[in-house]
Design a protein around this nucleic acid. Structure first.
Lengths: 69, 69
DNA sequence: ACATAATGTCAAGTTTCATTGACATAGACG
DNA sequence: CGTCTATGTCAATGAAACTTGACATTATGT
């Protein structure tokens, strides 16, 4: 399960700590999700999608998805 | 976090056990998710969405979503 | 060189998700 | 009635997500 978190965060010029605050989670959790240590829970995925005003499917990608282009 | 799992399952005339098999999880997990005991993980939510050929947002709803109509 | 901010990572702990196995209930069918 | 299927629920366990606290690394700026 890949994700575009780091990219979306960079577009807004937010640090991991800033994003963590906006999501109500720890900086380490943001880092762990960005670096692929684990996937967020579904409720957190919704909060992330809401924050960026995107669909969950536009942020989190099934493995292999987007690799074949 | 509400969901339309029970409805989607009924449309296809599947038992909880049948759905569990198709998702590769236990019958109790399907029941727990349907009855709101907990939310699925993000990867499982993707498998569910794939199975029904829907978006995650079309199956799982933020609390209060769809309540005000 | 020094200080600061940002990131990556580790350990140890709690909470949430998911498992198996078991048992109770309700409905349909002989 | 007995039996089979589906569902709901409990306990106990394990795995995954998330926490705080700490420390190392990298980059930026003075």
């Amino acid at each position: 399960m890949k994700n575009r978190l780091k990219l979306l965060r960079a577009e807004r010029d937010w640090s991991q700590g800033e994003l963590a605050t906006r999501l109500g989670i720890s900086r380490q959790s943001v880092n762990a999700i960005e670096t692929g240590k684990y996937d967020p829970s579904l409720p957190l995925a919704f909060r992330i999608a809401d924050l960026f005003a995107l669909q969950i499917e536009d942020i989190f990608l099934r493995d292999e998805e987007g690799a074949g282009e």
